[in-house]
Design a protein around this nucleic acid. Structure first.
Lengths: 259, 259
DNA sequence: AGATTGAGTTTCAATTAATGAAACCAAAAT
DNA sequence: ATTTTGGTTTCATTAATTGAAACTCAATCT
Protein backbone atom coordinates (compact mmCIF):
# COMPACT_ATOMS: atom_id res chain seq x y z
CA UNK A 1 0.00 0.00 0.00
CA UNK A 2 2.66 2.47 -1.07
CA UNK A 3 1.76 6.12 -1.02
CA UNK A 4 2.13 7.77 -4.43
CA UNK A 5 5.64 8.87 -3.42
CA UNK A 6 6.70 12.47 -4.11
CA UNK A 7 5.37 13.50 -0.73
CA UNK A 8 8.39 15.12 0.76
CA UNK A 9 6.63 18.28 1.75
CA UNK A 10 8.09 21.70 1.55
CA UNK A 11 11.66 20.47 1.54
CA UNK A 12 11.08 18.13 -1.35
CA UNK A 13 9.48 20.86 -3.42
CA UNK A 14 12.40 23.19 -2.79
CA UNK A 15 14.94 20.56 -3.74
CA UNK A 16 13.18 19.85 -6.98
CA UNK A 17 13.68 23.46 -7.94
CA UNK A 18 17.40 22.80 -7.93
CA UNK A 19 16.87 20.23 -10.65
CA UNK A 20 14.81 22.71 -12.59
CA UNK A 21 17.62 25.23 -12.46
CA UNK A 22 20.17 22.57 -13.35
CA UNK A 23 18.14 21.54 -16.37
CA UNK A 24 18.78 24.81 -18.14
CA UNK A 25 22.56 24.44 -17.91
CA UNK A 26 22.86 28.21 -17.88
CA UNK A 27 21.83 31.10 -15.65
CA UNK A 28 18.06 31.33 -15.74
CA UNK A 29 15.52 34.05 -15.04
CA UNK A 30 12.75 33.96 -12.50
CA UNK A 31 10.11 34.16 -15.20
CA UNK A 32 11.53 31.20 -17.08
CA UNK A 33 11.38 29.08 -13.97
CA UNK A 34 7.88 30.30 -13.25
CA UNK A 35 6.59 28.94 -16.55
CA UNK A 36 7.86 25.46 -15.77
CA UNK A 37 6.82 25.69 -12.15
CA UNK A 38 3.71 24.14 -10.66
CA UNK A 39 3.80 26.78 -7.93
CA UNK A 40 2.40 30.30 -7.94
CA UNK A 41 4.67 33.27 -8.23
CA UNK A 42 5.01 34.09 -4.58
CA UNK A 43 5.74 30.53 -3.60
CA UNK A 44 8.42 30.03 -6.19
CA UNK A 45 9.86 33.37 -5.27
CA UNK A 46 10.25 32.43 -1.64
CA UNK A 47 11.79 29.09 -2.53
CA UNK A 48 14.36 30.76 -4.69
CA UNK A 49 15.16 33.22 -1.91
CA UNK A 50 15.65 30.47 0.59
CA UNK A 51 17.84 28.44 -1.72
CA UNK A 52 19.88 31.51 -2.52
CA UNK A 53 20.31 32.40 1.16
CA UNK A 54 21.54 28.90 1.69
CA UNK A 55 24.02 29.21 -1.19
CA UNK A 56 22.44 26.33 -3.05
CA UNK A 57 21.61 28.87 -5.68
CA UNK A 58 23.46 31.95 -6.73
CA UNK A 59 21.64 35.08 -7.79
CA UNK A 60 23.28 37.38 -10.29
CA UNK A 61 22.09 40.84 -9.34
CA UNK A 62 22.83 42.58 -12.61
CA UNK A 63 21.54 39.88 -14.95
CA UNK A 64 18.65 38.86 -12.71
CA UNK A 65 19.48 35.20 -13.13
CA UNK A 66 19.81 32.19 -10.90
CA UNK A 67 22.39 29.45 -11.21
CA UNK A 68 23.49 26.55 -9.07
CA UNK A 69 25.49 27.62 -6.04
CA UNK A 70 28.86 27.05 -4.59
CA UNK A 71 27.71 25.09 -1.57
CA UNK A 72 26.86 22.21 -3.87
CA UNK A 73 30.48 21.89 -4.88
CA UNK A 74 31.65 21.77 -1.29
CA UNK A 75 29.10 19.15 -0.35
CA UNK A 76 29.74 17.10 -3.46
CA UNK A 77 33.41 16.99 -2.70
CA UNK A 78 32.69 15.58 0.73
CA UNK A 79 30.24 13.12 -0.80
CA UNK A 80 32.90 12.00 -3.20
CA UNK A 81 35.49 11.58 -0.49
CA UNK A 82 33.34 9.84 2.05
CA UNK A 83 30.53 8.09 0.25
CA UNK A 84 31.67 7.08 -3.19
CA UNK A 85 33.67 4.17 -4.45
CA UNK A 86 36.34 6.50 -5.80
CA UNK A 87 38.72 6.81 -2.82
CA UNK A 88 38.67 3.07 -2.24
CA UNK A 89 39.39 2.41 -5.89
CA UNK A 90 42.06 5.07 -6.24
CA UNK A 91 45.15 3.02 -5.48
CA UNK A 92 44.09 0.46 -8.03
CA UNK A 93 42.97 2.87 -10.71
CA UNK A 94 46.21 4.81 -10.29
CA UNK A 95 48.12 1.65 -10.80
CA UNK A 96 46.13 0.82 -13.89
CA UNK A 97 46.77 4.23 -15.42
CA UNK A 98 50.46 3.87 -14.74
CA UNK A 99 50.48 0.48 -16.38
CA UNK A 100 48.45 1.13 -19.52
CA UNK A 101 49.15 4.83 -20.02
CA UNK A 102 45.56 5.62 -21.05
CA UNK A 103 42.65 7.35 -19.38
CA UNK A 104 40.70 5.35 -16.79
CA UNK A 105 37.10 6.02 -15.79
CA UNK A 106 35.21 4.85 -12.73
CA UNK A 107 31.41 4.91 -12.73
CA UNK A 108 28.35 3.87 -10.77
CA UNK A 109 24.83 3.15 -11.90
CA UNK A 110 22.38 5.75 -10.67
CA UNK A 111 18.80 5.13 -11.55
CA UNK A 112 19.58 3.51 -14.87
CA UNK A 113 22.08 6.16 -15.79
CA UNK A 114 25.84 6.13 -15.64
CA UNK A 115 27.39 8.51 -13.12
CA UNK A 116 31.10 9.05 -13.51
CA UNK A 117 32.76 9.28 -10.13
CA UNK A 118 36.40 9.34 -11.10
CA UNK A 119 38.53 10.07 -14.09
CA UNK A 120 42.27 9.61 -14.27
CA UNK A 121 43.76 11.20 -17.29
CA UNK A 122 46.98 9.63 -18.41
CA UNK A 123 47.79 12.16 -21.07
CA UNK A 124 46.68 15.66 -21.82
CA UNK A 125 45.94 14.84 -25.39
CA UNK A 126 42.21 15.40 -25.32
CA UNK A 127 39.84 17.08 -22.96
CA UNK A 128 36.41 15.93 -23.90
CA UNK A 129 36.19 12.83 -21.78
CA UNK A 130 33.85 12.43 -18.85
CA UNK A 131 34.14 14.54 -15.71
CA UNK A 132 33.35 13.60 -12.15
CA UNK A 133 29.63 14.10 -11.55
CA UNK A 134 28.79 13.87 -15.22
CA UNK A 135 26.00 11.53 -16.22
CA UNK A 136 25.52 9.60 -19.43
CA UNK A 137 23.02 7.02 -20.65
CA UNK A 138 23.94 3.45 -19.85
CA UNK A 139 23.00 1.90 -23.20
CA UNK A 140 25.73 3.60 -25.22
CA UNK A 141 28.71 3.70 -22.88
CA UNK A 142 31.19 0.99 -21.99
CA UNK A 143 30.78 1.32 -18.24
CA UNK A 144 27.02 1.51 -18.69
CA UNK A 145 26.76 -1.74 -20.57
CA UNK A 146 29.19 -3.42 -18.21
CA UNK A 147 26.83 -2.59 -15.35
CA UNK A 148 23.54 -3.28 -17.10
CA UNK A 149 24.79 -6.79 -17.77
CA UNK A 150 24.90 -7.47 -14.06
CA UNK A 151 21.72 -6.09 -12.59
CA UNK A 152 18.67 -8.18 -11.85
CA UNK A 153 16.70 -9.06 -15.03
CA UNK A 154 13.50 -7.42 -13.83
CA UNK A 155 15.34 -4.22 -12.95
CA UNK A 156 16.92 -4.28 -16.37
CA UNK A 157 13.48 -4.51 -17.93
CA UNK A 158 12.31 -1.48 -15.99
CA UNK A 159 15.38 0.52 -16.88
CA UNK A 160 15.09 -0.27 -20.56
CA UNK A 161 11.41 0.58 -20.58
CA UNK A 162 12.09 4.02 -19.18
CA UNK A 163 15.01 4.63 -21.47
CA UNK A 164 14.64 6.63 -24.65
CA UNK A 165 17.29 5.65 -27.13
CA UNK A 166 18.90 8.66 -28.67
CA UNK A 167 21.38 8.29 -31.52
CA UNK A 168 24.37 10.32 -30.30
CA UNK A 169 26.63 9.20 -33.13
CA UNK A 170 26.20 7.11 -36.27
CA UNK A 171 27.53 4.17 -34.27
CA UNK A 172 25.00 4.37 -31.43
CA UNK A 173 22.92 1.22 -31.15
CA UNK A 174 19.34 2.11 -30.47
CA UNK A 175 17.55 -1.21 -30.34
CA UNK A 176 16.82 -3.25 -27.25
CA UNK A 177 17.53 -6.42 -29.17
CA UNK A 178 21.10 -5.53 -30.09
CA UNK A 179 21.69 -4.24 -26.58
CA UNK A 180 20.54 -7.51 -25.04
CA UNK A 181 22.85 -9.34 -27.37
CA UNK A 182 25.76 -7.21 -26.26
CA UNK A 183 24.90 -7.69 -22.61
CA UNK A 184 25.01 -11.42 -23.17
CA UNK A 185 28.56 -11.08 -24.48
CA UNK A 186 29.53 -9.00 -21.47
CA UNK A 187 28.26 -11.69 -19.12
CA UNK A 188 30.31 -14.32 -20.92
CA UNK A 189 33.43 -12.32 -21.47
CA UNK A 190 33.46 -9.70 -18.72
CA UNK A 191 34.19 -6.93 -21.20
CA UNK A 192 31.87 -4.28 -22.65
CA UNK A 193 32.79 -2.17 -25.65
CA UNK A 194 31.99 1.37 -26.60
CA UNK A 195 32.88 1.90 -30.24
CA UNK A 196 32.26 5.64 -30.56
CA UNK A 197 28.66 5.09 -29.53
CA UNK A 198 28.43 8.06 -27.22
CA UNK A 199 31.18 10.40 -28.38
CA UNK A 200 32.59 10.55 -31.86
CA UNK A 201 36.26 9.62 -31.87
CA UNK A 202 36.32 8.06 -28.40
CA UNK A 203 36.12 4.38 -27.67
CA UNK A 204 36.62 2.25 -24.58
CA UNK A 205 36.59 -1.16 -23.05
CA UNK A 206 34.91 -1.59 -19.68
CA UNK A 207 34.30 -4.20 -17.02
CA UNK A 208 31.98 -4.37 -14.03
CA UNK A 209 33.18 -4.25 -10.45
CA UNK A 210 31.55 -6.93 -8.35
CA UNK A 211 31.78 -7.39 -4.62
CA UNK A 212 33.00 -10.73 -3.36
CA UNK A 213 29.37 -11.65 -2.82
CA UNK A 214 28.75 -10.98 -6.50
CA UNK A 215 26.80 -7.77 -6.13
CA UNK A 216 27.36 -5.05 -8.71
CA UNK A 217 29.02 -1.97 -7.28
CA UNK A 218 30.36 -0.08 -10.28
CA UNK A 219 32.48 -0.32 -13.40
CA UNK A 220 35.81 0.83 -14.77
CA UNK A 221 36.91 1.52 -18.30
CA UNK A 222 39.97 2.34 -20.31
CA UNK A 223 39.08 5.06 -22.79
CA UNK A 224 41.06 6.58 -25.58
CA UNK A 225 40.85 8.44 -28.85
CA UNK A 226 40.16 6.07 -31.73
CA UNK A 227 43.21 7.27 -33.58
CA UNK A 228 45.38 5.99 -30.76
CA UNK A 229 43.75 2.60 -30.19
CA UNK A 230 40.60 0.96 -31.47
CA UNK A 231 38.68 -1.48 -29.30
CA UNK A 232 40.55 -4.48 -30.62
CA UNK A 233 43.88 -2.85 -29.79
CA UNK A 234 42.58 -1.89 -26.34
CA UNK A 235 42.02 -5.57 -25.66
CA UNK A 236 45.73 -5.91 -25.02
CA UNK A 237 44.86 -4.31 -21.65
CA UNK A 238 42.01 -6.71 -20.89
CA UNK A 239 44.02 -8.61 -18.32
CA UNK A 240 45.03 -5.52 -16.38
CA UNK A 241 41.50 -4.16 -16.52
CA UNK A 242 39.92 -7.33 -15.14
CA UNK A 243 42.55 -7.62 -12.47
CA UNK A 244 42.00 -4.03 -11.34
CA UNK A 245 38.23 -4.54 -11.18
CA UNK A 246 38.76 -7.64 -9.10
CA UNK A 247 41.00 -5.84 -6.62
CA UNK A 248 38.59 -2.93 -6.26
CA UNK A 249 35.75 -5.36 -5.72
CA UNK A 250 37.62 -7.04 -2.91
CA UNK A 251 38.52 -3.77 -1.21
CA UNK A 252 34.99 -2.48 -1.58
CA UNK A 253 33.14 -5.49 -0.31
CA UNK A 254 32.26 -3.79 2.94
CA UNK A 255 31.10 -0.76 1.07
CA UNK A 256 27.39 -0.38 0.38
CA UNK A 257 26.20 0.44 -3.10
CA UNK A 258 23.21 2.75 -3.13
CA UNK A 259 20.07 0.92 -4.17
CA UNK B 1 16.94 46.84 9.65
CA UNK B 2 18.16 43.41 8.66
CA UNK B 3 16.38 40.46 10.15
CA UNK B 4 18.65 38.19 12.20
CA UNK B 5 19.09 36.01 9.11
CA UNK B 6 18.88 32.20 9.50
CA UNK B 7 15.15 32.35 8.93
CA UNK B 8 14.78 30.05 6.01
CA UNK B 9 12.04 27.96 7.51
CA UNK B 10 11.73 24.26 7.06
CA UNK B 11 13.84 24.15 3.96
CA UNK B 12 16.71 25.97 5.62
CA UNK B 13 16.66 23.60 8.54
CA UNK B 14 16.75 20.58 6.28
CA UNK B 15 19.63 21.93 4.27
CA UNK B 16 21.64 22.58 7.39
CA UNK B 17 21.39 18.92 8.19
CA UNK B 18 23.40 18.24 5.06
CA UNK B 19 26.22 20.26 6.54
CA UNK B 20 25.93 18.34 9.76
CA UNK B 21 26.31 15.06 7.89
CA UNK B 22 29.18 16.46 5.84
CA UNK B 23 30.98 17.54 9.00
CA UNK B 24 31.58 13.98 10.07
CA UNK B 25 33.35 13.05 6.84
CA UNK B 26 32.16 9.50 7.28
CA UNK B 27 28.87 7.62 7.38
CA UNK B 28 27.02 8.69 10.51
CA UNK B 29 24.30 7.19 12.67
CA UNK B 30 20.96 8.71 13.48
CA UNK B 31 21.82 8.91 17.15
CA UNK B 32 25.04 10.80 16.50
CA UNK B 33 23.20 13.39 14.48
CA UNK B 34 20.53 13.60 17.15
CA UNK B 35 23.04 14.68 19.76
CA UNK B 36 24.23 17.57 17.66
CA UNK B 37 20.75 18.42 16.50
CA UNK B 38 18.59 21.21 17.91
CA UNK B 39 15.52 19.26 16.79
CA UNK B 40 13.64 16.52 18.56
CA UNK B 41 13.93 12.94 17.47
CA UNK B 42 10.86 12.76 15.30
CA UNK B 43 11.64 15.96 13.48
CA UNK B 44 15.19 15.02 12.69
CA UNK B 45 13.96 11.62 11.64
CA UNK B 46 11.54 13.05 9.12
CA UNK B 47 14.16 15.42 7.75
CA UNK B 48 16.53 12.56 7.18
CA UNK B 49 13.83 10.57 5.46
CA UNK B 50 13.02 13.40 3.13
CA UNK B 51 16.64 14.08 2.28
CA UNK B 52 17.19 10.40 1.66
CA UNK B 53 14.13 10.13 -0.59
CA UNK B 54 15.53 13.02 -2.55
CA UNK B 55 18.93 11.34 -2.85
CA UNK B 56 20.65 14.19 -1.08
CA UNK B 57 21.49 11.63 1.56
CA UNK B 58 22.14 7.97 1.23
CA UNK B 59 21.03 5.51 3.87
CA UNK B 60 23.03 2.36 4.39
CA UNK B 61 20.48 -0.22 5.44
CA UNK B 62 22.86 -2.68 7.02
CA UNK B 63 25.07 -0.22 8.85
CA UNK B 64 22.25 2.16 9.72
CA UNK B 65 24.26 5.15 8.62
CA UNK B 66 23.67 8.22 6.53
CA UNK B 67 26.12 9.80 4.13
CA UNK B 68 25.93 12.48 1.50
CA UNK B 69 24.08 11.37 -1.60
CA UNK B 70 24.74 10.99 -5.23
CA UNK B 71 22.45 13.78 -6.38
CA UNK B 72 24.89 16.27 -4.94
CA UNK B 73 27.55 15.12 -7.35
CA UNK B 74 25.28 15.51 -10.34
CA UNK B 75 24.20 18.97 -9.31
CA UNK B 76 27.72 20.04 -8.45
CA UNK B 77 28.92 19.01 -11.85
CA UNK B 78 26.32 21.20 -13.47
CA UNK B 79 27.22 24.02 -11.10
CA UNK B 80 30.83 23.66 -12.09
CA UNK B 81 30.06 23.65 -15.78
CA UNK B 82 27.58 26.49 -15.83
CA UNK B 83 28.29 28.75 -12.89
CA UNK B 84 31.96 28.61 -12.06
CA UNK B 85 34.97 30.33 -13.49
CA UNK B 86 36.53 27.00 -14.43
CA UNK B 87 35.18 26.44 -17.94
CA UNK B 88 36.01 30.01 -18.96
CA UNK B 89 39.52 29.65 -17.58
CA UNK B 90 40.16 26.20 -19.01
CA UNK B 91 41.78 27.13 -22.32
CA UNK B 92 44.22 29.36 -20.49
CA UNK B 93 44.96 27.04 -17.62
CA UNK B 94 45.50 24.19 -20.07
CA UNK B 95 47.95 26.33 -21.93
CA UNK B 96 49.77 27.18 -18.73
CA UNK B 97 50.09 23.54 -17.72
CA UNK B 98 51.46 22.70 -21.13
CA UNK B 99 54.00 25.50 -20.85
CA UNK B 100 55.30 24.99 -17.32
CA UNK B 101 54.70 21.28 -16.89
CA UNK B 102 53.54 21.63 -13.30
CA UNK B 103 50.17 21.40 -11.59
CA UNK B 104 47.86 24.40 -11.89
CA UNK B 105 45.06 25.25 -9.44
CA UNK B 106 42.13 27.58 -9.89
CA UNK B 107 40.27 28.86 -6.84
CA UNK B 108 37.59 31.28 -5.69
CA UNK B 109 37.05 32.95 -2.37
CA UNK B 110 33.96 31.66 -0.60
CA UNK B 111 33.15 33.33 2.63
CA UNK B 112 36.77 33.92 3.59
CA UNK B 113 37.77 30.42 2.61
CA UNK B 114 39.48 29.15 -0.49
CA UNK B 115 37.37 26.92 -2.72
CA UNK B 116 39.28 25.03 -5.37
CA UNK B 117 37.31 24.89 -8.57
CA UNK B 118 39.81 23.35 -10.92
CA UNK B 119 42.96 21.37 -10.80
CA UNK B 120 45.10 20.42 -13.75
CA UNK B 121 47.69 17.87 -12.93
CA UNK B 122 50.69 17.97 -15.18
CA UNK B 123 52.35 14.88 -13.78
CA UNK B 124 51.17 11.94 -11.78
CA UNK B 125 53.97 12.29 -9.33
CA UNK B 126 51.90 13.11 -6.27
CA UNK B 127 48.27 12.80 -5.40
CA UNK B 128 47.74 14.91 -2.34
CA UNK B 129 47.01 18.22 -4.00
CA UNK B 130 43.67 19.93 -3.88
CA UNK B 131 40.58 18.50 -5.52
CA UNK B 132 37.68 20.34 -7.08
CA UNK B 133 35.22 21.31 -4.35
CA UNK B 134 37.83 21.09 -1.64
CA UNK B 135 38.11 24.03 0.72
CA UNK B 136 41.12 25.36 2.56
CA UNK B 137 41.80 28.35 4.78
CA UNK B 138 42.87 31.45 2.91
CA UNK B 139 45.65 32.57 5.27
CA UNK B 140 48.00 29.68 4.56
CA UNK B 141 47.51 28.97 0.87
CA UNK B 142 48.96 30.75 -2.13
CA UNK B 143 45.64 31.32 -3.88
CA UNK B 144 44.12 32.38 -0.56
CA UNK B 145 46.66 35.09 0.09
CA UNK B 146 46.52 36.22 -3.51
CA UNK B 147 42.81 36.84 -3.09
CA UNK B 148 42.86 38.30 0.41
CA UNK B 149 45.25 40.95 -0.88
CA UNK B 150 42.58 42.26 -3.22
CA UNK B 151 39.37 42.37 -1.24
CA UNK B 152 38.04 45.53 0.37
CA UNK B 153 39.96 46.41 3.58
CA UNK B 154 36.87 46.26 5.76
CA UNK B 155 35.90 42.83 4.41
CA UNK B 156 39.44 41.68 5.09
CA UNK B 157 39.10 42.82 8.69
CA UNK B 158 35.91 40.82 9.10
CA UNK B 159 37.40 37.73 7.52
CA UNK B 160 40.49 37.85 9.70
CA UNK B 161 38.42 38.38 12.82
CA UNK B 162 36.39 35.24 12.13
CA UNK B 163 39.44 33.22 11.21
CA UNK B 164 41.09 30.91 13.68
CA UNK B 165 44.71 30.40 12.80
CA UNK B 166 45.65 26.78 12.95
CA UNK B 167 49.27 25.70 12.51
CA UNK B 168 49.02 23.02 9.82
CA UNK B 169 52.77 22.70 9.40
CA UNK B 170 55.84 24.18 11.14
CA UNK B 171 55.91 26.78 8.37
CA UNK B 172 52.33 28.03 8.81
CA UNK B 173 52.23 31.71 9.73
CA UNK B 174 49.64 32.30 12.39
CA UNK B 175 49.84 35.99 13.12
CA UNK B 176 47.73 38.69 11.54
CA UNK B 177 50.75 40.98 11.46
CA UNK B 178 52.89 38.73 9.29
CA UNK B 179 49.90 38.00 7.08
CA UNK B 180 49.28 41.71 6.51
CA UNK B 181 52.90 42.13 5.62
CA UNK B 182 52.66 39.34 3.07
CA UNK B 183 49.50 40.80 1.59
CA UNK B 184 51.34 44.08 1.13
CA UNK B 185 53.97 42.26 -0.92
CA UNK B 186 51.28 40.59 -3.00
CA UNK B 187 49.74 43.96 -3.82
CA UNK B 188 53.10 45.29 -4.95
CA UNK B 189 54.35 42.25 -6.76
CA UNK B 190 51.22 40.37 -7.83
CA UNK B 191 52.59 37.10 -6.49
CA UNK B 192 51.69 35.22 -3.30
CA UNK B 193 53.80 32.38 -1.92
CA UNK B 194 52.91 29.23 -0.09
CA UNK B 195 56.09 27.74 1.36
CA UNK B 196 54.73 24.48 2.76
CA UNK B 197 52.35 26.45 4.96
CA UNK B 198 49.33 24.24 4.39
CA UNK B 199 50.76 20.92 3.30
CA UNK B 200 54.16 19.61 4.15
CA UNK B 201 56.27 19.17 1.05
CA UNK B 202 54.08 21.25 -1.26
CA UNK B 203 54.70 24.83 -2.23
CA UNK B 204 53.22 27.19 -4.76
CA UNK B 205 53.19 30.63 -6.27
CA UNK B 206 49.84 32.26 -6.93
CA UNK B 207 48.34 35.37 -8.44
CA UNK B 208 44.88 36.91 -8.31
CA UNK B 209 42.55 37.06 -11.29
CA UNK B 210 41.03 40.50 -11.68
CA UNK B 211 38.30 41.55 -14.06
CA UNK B 212 39.06 44.41 -16.41
CA UNK B 213 37.18 46.64 -13.98
CA UNK B 214 39.61 45.55 -11.28
CA UNK B 215 37.23 43.35 -9.30
CA UNK B 216 38.62 40.17 -7.77
CA UNK B 217 37.17 37.05 -9.31
CA UNK B 218 39.58 34.27 -8.34
CA UNK B 219 43.18 33.15 -8.29
CA UNK B 220 45.48 30.66 -9.96
CA UNK B 221 48.60 28.97 -8.71
CA UNK B 222 51.39 26.75 -9.87
CA UNK B 223 51.98 24.10 -7.23
CA UNK B 224 54.64 21.46 -6.93
CA UNK B 225 56.49 19.21 -4.55
CA UNK B 226 59.32 21.07 -2.82
CA UNK B 227 61.85 18.53 -3.97
CA UNK B 228 61.07 19.49 -7.56
CA UNK B 229 61.03 23.27 -7.22
CA UNK B 230 61.12 25.65 -4.29
CA UNK B 231 59.32 28.97 -4.44
CA UNK B 232 62.36 30.79 -5.76
CA UNK B 233 62.71 28.29 -8.59
CA UNK B 234 58.98 28.53 -9.33
CA UNK B 235 59.47 32.24 -9.95
CA UNK B 236 60.85 31.37 -13.35
CA UNK B 237 57.18 30.84 -14.27
CA UNK B 238 56.06 34.19 -12.89
CA UNK B 239 55.64 35.73 -16.33
CA UNK B 240 53.46 32.91 -17.64
CA UNK B 241 51.39 32.88 -14.47
CA UNK B 242 50.66 36.59 -14.59
CA UNK B 243 49.89 36.45 -18.27
CA UNK B 244 47.44 33.57 -17.79
CA UNK B 245 45.67 35.40 -14.98
CA UNK B 246 45.35 38.45 -17.16
CA UNK B 247 43.82 36.49 -20.02
CA UNK B 248 41.34 34.74 -17.75
CA UNK B 249 40.39 38.08 -16.23
CA UNK B 250 39.65 39.49 -19.65
CA UNK B 251 37.56 36.51 -20.71
CA UNK B 252 35.68 36.50 -17.44
CA UNK B 253 34.83 40.15 -17.25
CA UNK B 254 31.21 39.55 -18.06
CA UNK B 255 31.04 36.81 -15.52
CA UNK B 256 29.65 37.62 -12.07
CA UNK B 257 31.56 36.66 -8.98
CA UNK B 258 29.34 35.56 -6.12
CA UNK B 259 29.27 38.13 -3.34
C1' DA C 1 6.09 63.21 -21.85
C1' DG C 2 2.57 60.18 -20.28
C1' DA C 3 0.56 55.73 -20.39
C1' DT C 4 1.11 50.87 -20.45
C1' DT C 5 3.01 46.61 -19.98
C1' DG C 6 5.72 43.21 -17.72
C1' DA C 7 8.84 41.37 -14.38
C1' DG C 8 9.65 40.98 -9.83
C1' DT C 9 8.34 41.74 -4.80
C1' DT C 10 5.42 42.14 -0.69
C1' DT C 11 1.14 41.49 2.11
C1' DC C 12 -2.12 38.83 4.74
C1' DA C 13 -5.94 35.78 6.11
C1' DA C 14 -7.11 30.93 5.20
C1' DT C 15 -5.22 26.69 5.08
C1' DT C 16 -2.12 23.15 5.53
C1' DA C 17 1.83 21.16 7.00
C1' DA C 18 5.43 20.88 10.58
C1' DT C 19 6.13 19.89 15.27
C1' DG C 20 7.49 17.13 19.30
C1' DA C 21 5.88 14.59 23.49
C1' DA C 22 4.93 10.24 24.13
C1' DA C 23 4.02 5.68 22.93
C1' DC C 24 5.79 1.92 20.51
C1' DC C 25 8.83 -1.67 18.57
C1' DA C 26 12.90 -4.53 17.67
C1' DA C 27 17.25 -5.92 18.61
C1' DA C 28 21.13 -5.99 21.49
C1' DA C 29 23.00 -6.10 26.13
C1' DT C 30 22.86 -7.68 30.80
C1' DA D 1 14.16 -13.35 31.02
C1' DT D 2 14.53 -8.56 31.60
C1' DT D 3 16.36 -4.09 30.61
C1' DT D 4 18.42 -0.83 27.76
C1' DT D 5 19.43 1.25 23.59
C1' DG D 6 18.37 2.96 19.09
C1' DG D 7 15.04 3.74 15.89
C1' DT D 8 10.08 4.47 14.18
C1' DT D 9 5.18 5.88 14.38
C1' DT D 10 1.16 8.44 16.23
C1' DC D 11 -1.61 12.49 16.86
C1' DA D 12 -3.35 16.74 18.90
C1' DT D 13 -1.21 21.27 19.09
C1' DT D 14 1.10 24.80 16.98
C1' DA D 15 3.30 27.33 13.52
C1' DA D 16 4.52 27.79 8.87
C1' DT D 17 3.27 27.55 4.06
C1' DT D 18 0.30 29.13 0.73
C1' DG D 19 -1.35 31.98 -3.14
C1' DA D 20 -4.61 35.64 -4.59
C1' DA D 21 -4.09 40.10 -4.98
C1' DA D 22 -2.07 44.40 -4.49
C1' DC D 23 2.06 46.88 -5.27
C1' DT D 24 6.63 48.76 -7.19
C1' DC D 25 9.70 49.92 -10.48
C1' DA D 26 11.70 50.01 -14.88
C1' DA D 27 11.36 49.35 -19.54
C1' DT D 28 8.57 49.90 -23.66
C1' DC D 29 5.07 51.81 -26.32
C1' DT D 30 1.99 55.77 -28.19
Amino acid sequence: MNKPVKNDGTVGKALEILDAVAMYERPVRFSELLEQSPYPKATLYRFLQTLTNQKFLEYDQTAGTYSLGIRLMRLAHTAWKTASLAPIARPHTEELVAKVGETVHLAQLDNGQVLFIDKLRATDRFQTLAQVGQVAPAYCTGVGKAMLAFIAPKRLQIVLQQQSFYKFTPATHTSVASLNQELECVRKDGIAFDREEHEQGINSIATPILSSSGRLIGAISIATATNRFDCEALMQFKGSLLETAKKIGEDATSWQFPS
